[in-house]
């Protein structure tokens, strides 16, 4: 489905097979710059597999992925991340052996120019860069509202704050696109509301989001565009209003309507 706007990510005829099982089957869609696109579908629909293909963790069986005009199909995850795509995870993946601010500074790895030799020799530019990165990391933590926890160990943070830390770490890379894998999972209502606020604020600053989510209230509230998967197949695509009225989508979520005799 073509829409107005500058295309940032193109997923084209992506198929992924695991042995005889087709996890993703001929899925195509575009993500425009500055929009929030949701990928929804029942459990086992292939959403996380699709995310893993886009970020390079899995190679597709067929099809192509283009990001910012570059074909990234089959590229390594770190190469894709260096192009400006970051992600968060369904299960929290913060570096618990580091402080909160170090986690965020690790997120900024792609923008740090220090070579191993420079780091070892402690040339003046290194200290300058490290100071700048630490300040930037602090600003990222301020954006998500956990700057006061900057020097705590990441493992001591409550679940909701670890989610926010993942977002802060993702934005530290100054990415063009952030993929959020079930960002609302495990959050209470207050935390969910705050996270929605954070995402909308970051979108205002020019970031683009693709997210997988089961919380339909959130999906309908913040998405500009929705792609629906079921059993690895794209069964619907459109604005929240269009998806809300789509019979195939309703059937996939609620089961076929039965005729009452």
């Amino acid at each position: 489905m073509k829409r107005n706007g500058q295309v940032l990510l193109t997923v084209e005829h992506i198929t992924k097979q695991f042995g005889g099982v087709v996890a993703v089957n001929d899925v195509s869609f575009d993500v425009n710059k500055g929009e929030i696109l949701a990928v929804i579908g029942p459990n086992g629909a292939g959403k996380t597999t699709l995310f893993n293909i886009v970020t390079g963790i899995l190679a597709p069986s067929s099809g192509t992925v283009r990001f910012n005009g570059t074909d990234i199909t089959g590229k390594k995850p770190y190469q894709i991340a260096q192009l400006g795509m970051t992600r968060t995870f369904q299960n929290l993946e913060v570096f618990t052996n580091m402080s909160v601010i170090e986690n965020v500074m690790t997120g900024a790895h792609r923008n740090m120019k220090t070579s191993f030799l420079q780091a070892g020799l402690r040339v003046p530019s290194v200290k300058k860069e490290e100071k700048a990165v630490e300040e930037k990391a602090m600003r990222c933590l301020e954006k998500v509202g956990i700057a006061h926890l900057a020097y705590e160990r990441a493992e001591t943070l409550p679940y909701g704050n670890q989610r926010l830390l993942e977002i802060a770490r993702a934005i530290a890379a100054e990415p063009a696109l952030i993929l959020l894998d079930e960002p609302m999972a495990g959050l209470n209502d207050e935390e969910s509301r705050w996270l929605v606020e954070v995402i909308l604020q970051l979108r205002k600053e020019g970031l683009t989001f693709v997210f997988v989510e089961h919380d339909m209230e959130t999906v309908m509230a913040i998405s500009d565009h929705i792609v629906v998967l079921d059993n690895g197949v794209k069964i619907g695509e459109g604005t929240p209003e269009e998806i809300y009225r789509n019979k195939a989508v309703v059937a996939a979520y609620l089961g076929e309507e039965e005729t009452v005799c």
Binding site: A81, T86, F95, T96, T106, G107, R110, R169, A173
Partner: peptide, 10 residues
């Protein structure tokens, strides 16, 4: 700590 996550951080 986590090779895969580190790779996704570039």
């Amino acid at each position: 700590q986590d090779r895969e996550t580190a790779a996704l951080m570039s």
